[in-house]
């Protein structure tokens, strides 16, 4: 009696042909779905990036999101299939399968390929985001302290200092490259501009350099992302991206000034 039930179980569950068809359909559906999604370029909740650097990051994020939906889709597809298909039906003991080398190789190799692909694009974007322009249009030194920011424009000797009562504003030109030098006076802070898809630590005793090339004028919020003590949540600033022309007149009007 037991024998026969085992046999039927095998006949139903493991018909390789029907399995392959189902698999193929699922894969194709997912691939089509993700291509369609990529076509209309959904943001998946992220900022599209208001700098050229942030834009590249956003595209990378999209790529990761689509891959994630694909990988998640397959994994959850398999999982829910198993959960529904192999609900307990009888007390029969199913076939005692210990391994299947082919399938094991498959689920080792495919993730490796995916990961290699992700790494390839990661490095490409990383090089773009971290690239330093040897001759930037503007230079700003950003100093973080408990609990505020100081922005210093060496070219015009302009200083803007903020506090928790009064958030300072970082002014940047649109379409030009600003080189930021980031330092901290006390503890670790995080210089974070969500709309730029970027953050970097302000470390005591260590100087960080990076570039922004804003692509769209507007005002954006900036925050301290790394816990830095009591008023960490109020260590805000804003970023104003002006057209190159407006920026020019702003700098000349601010030359030599210290705004607190």
């Amino acid at each position: 009696m037991k024998r026969s039930t085992i046999k039927t179980a095998r006949a139903e569950g493991n018909s390789p042909a029907s399995r392959r068809v189902r698999w193929g359909a699922k894969l194709a559906g997912l691939a089509v779905g993700s291509v369609a999604l990529a076509g209309c370029s959904p943001a998946f909740g992220a900022y599209r990036g208001a700098t050229t650097q942030g834009r590249s990051t956003f595209h990378l994020f999209q790529g990761f999101a689509i891959t994630a939906i694909f990988v998640g889709g397959i994994t959850f597809g398999l999982l829910f299939f198993v959960l529904l298909r192999y609900r307990k039906k009888s007390d029969a003991i199913p076939k005692q399968r210990h391994s299947n080398v082919k399938i094991e190789i498959l689920y080792t190799v495919i993730p490796i390929l995916i990961v290699v692909g992700l790494f390839f694009f990661t490095v490409k974007v990383e090089n773009k985001v971290d690239a330093l322009n040897p001759s930037p249009n503007v230079k700003v030194t950003v100093t973080a302290f408990q609990w505020g920011w100081k922005f210093y424009y060496p070219a015009t000797n302009t200083t803007v200092i903020g506090s928790i009562k009064h958030y300072p504003q970082l002014v940047l030109p649109e379409g030009e490259t600003t080189a930021i030098t980031l330092v901290s006076q006390d503890v670790v802070h995080g210089f974070y501009i969500p709309a730029f898809n970027f953050s970097r630590y302000a470390l005591p005793g260590f100087v960080n350099h990076f570039d922004f090339t804003p692509t769209s004028a507007g005002t954006y919020i900036g925050r301290c992302s790394q816990l830095c003590g009591l008023y960490h949540s109020e260590m805000l600033f804003s970023v104003k991206v002006l057209s190159a022309q407006q920026f020019q007149s702003w700098t000349s009007s601010q030359a030599g000034k210290v705004t607190a």
Binding site: A46, Y47, G54, S56, T57, F58, L60, F61, F64, L118, T122, V125, E126, V129, G190, Y192, P194, N197, F198, S199, R200, S225, Q226, L227
Partner: peptide, 12 residues
């Protein structure tokens, strides 16, 4: 694990 994406999401 992808540094650019982490720049955008770190400590959020």
């Amino acid at each position: 694990a992808s540094p650019p994406i982490d720049f955008a999401t770190h400590d959020t």
